[in-house]
Amino acid sequence: MDKKPKAFLFDLNGTMINDMEFHNHAWHDILTKDLGANISFEGVKKEMYGKNQDLLERVFGVGHFSQEKIDQISIEKEHRYQAAYKAHLTLIHGLDKFLDKAKNANILMAIGSAAIPFNINFVLDNLAIRSYFETVVSAEDVEKSKPDPETFTKGASILGISPEDCIVFEDAPKGVEAAQHAGMRCVALTTMHTADEFSAYNNIIAFIEDYNDPALDQLF
């Protein structure tokens, strides 16, 4: 790599922890059993990007639920996800050492996630990794969620680092799209999507299964 990065911006779910199947099950259960949507497990998977409200509006249409009901559904879904996932909560292989290596290299780090703080705190506090990150940009901190670039541009702005000096870590095509719109290079994790599902984007510098991949050596 010609230009070494000054900052790493991490998506959370599916990128730092391999939990997307648990989100998929929680959403599918609520959408079909509780709310009566006719949507398959794979169909739900395709809709799992952006804010919880965005997902509900894609499935049911804007205005179908009151804001109070949307908030109620959202927190219920997260309670179910956390109850199912907590016993499995662990960092993706190699990430602990990668975070240490980045910190020792004086690379600034931030979280840029479409999750609500309730879920972000669940991960950062239970895994005791909050100290690595200079800032956290959550669903509540942006007007427009991914694939809009605001999550990542806001994170970079808070860090004081220009977009071209940032590397984004993402597991979802829409997240990679957000990074591309932000003018940022991206490392794509293949936890939930195969490499061919990212073919529309030209900002990916590596595909990895976990953080032990030697392709990451180019970042330092």
Rank of each mutant, 00 (worst) to 15 (best):
A128E: 15
I129R: 04
R130H: 12
S131L: 08
S131Y: 08
S131D: 15
F133H: 07
E134A: 12
E134L: 04
T135P: 02
T135H: 13
V137I: 15
A139Q: 13
E140K: 09
D141R: 10
D141N: 15
V142I: 14
V142E: 05
E143P: 01
S145G: 15
S145H: 07
S145Y: 04
P147W: 06
D148T: 05
P149Y: 05
F152V: 07
T153R: 04
T153G: 04
K154P: 08
G155E: 02
G155S: 15
G155L: 06
G155C: 13
G155N: 14
A156W: 04
A156V: 01
S157F: 09
I158H: 01
I158R: 08
I158G: 03
G160N: 10
G160P: 02
I161L: 02
S162I: 12
P163G: 05
E164N: 08
D165A: 10
C166V: 09
C166N: 06
I167P: 03
I167W: 02
I167R: 03
I167N: 03
I167A: 03
V168H: 00
F169G: 06
E170S: 12
E170V: 08
D171W: 08
D171F: 14
A172E: 06
A172Y: 05
K174F: 08
K174Y: 05
K174N: 10
K174M: 09
E177P: 00
A178G: 01
A178E: 01
Q180L: 14
M184D: 00
R185E: 15
R185H: 15
C186H: 03
C186A: 15
V187C: 11
V187D: 09
A188F: 03
A188Y: 00
L189S: 12
T190E: 06
T191I: 15
T191N: 09
H193K: 15
H193P: 06
T194E: 13
T194V: 13
A195F: 04
D196S: 14
D196L: 10
F198K: 00
S199Y: 08
A200Q: 11
Y201M: 09
N203S: 07
N203C: 02
N203M: 02
